[in-house]
């Protein structure tokens, strides 16, 4: 059973990202959207946490949110909405960190 975790809150305001990374299963995916994409800010602590988790091809971000915040998307797989839909079907469940 695999889960796509979706986070939409800034990693600088709460512990969602840290908690999620602690719970993430070996085959689970993580999609950052909205303010959660600030986790990719260069030189930041959240980015270090993401790099340490070494998610590789299981780390995604909504392309429009990267673009809106001028964030570097080279360390993630940027997805548009049709790809978000496909991702939600690729994993068995979708868990949004509300």
């Amino acid at each position: 059973m695999t889960t796509l975790h979706v986070i939409a809150h800034s990693p600088f305001g709460d512990q969602r990202l840290a908690s999620c990374l602690r719970l993430l299963g070996a085959d689970d995916g993580l999609l950052l959207c909205g303010d959660a994409t600030y986790a990719l800010k260069a030189g930041s602590e959240p980015l270090q946490m993401l790099q340490a988790a070494n998610l590789g091809p299981r780390l995604f971000a909504l392309a429009e949110d990267l673009q809106a915040r001028a964030l570097d998307g080279t360390q993630v797989i940027a997805v548009d909405y049709p790809a978000f839909v496909e991702l939600s079907l690729h994993y068995d469940k979708v868990n949004s960190w509300l």
């Binding site: 939409a8 909205g34 303010d35 959660a36 939600s88 079907l89 469940k93 979708v94 949004s96 509300l98």
Partner: peptide, 10 residues
């Protein structure tokens, strides 16, 4: 449904 997707946050 096959999938439940919830939306909240910023």
């Amino acid at each position: 449904a096959d999938r439940l997707v919830c939306f909240g946050g910023d």
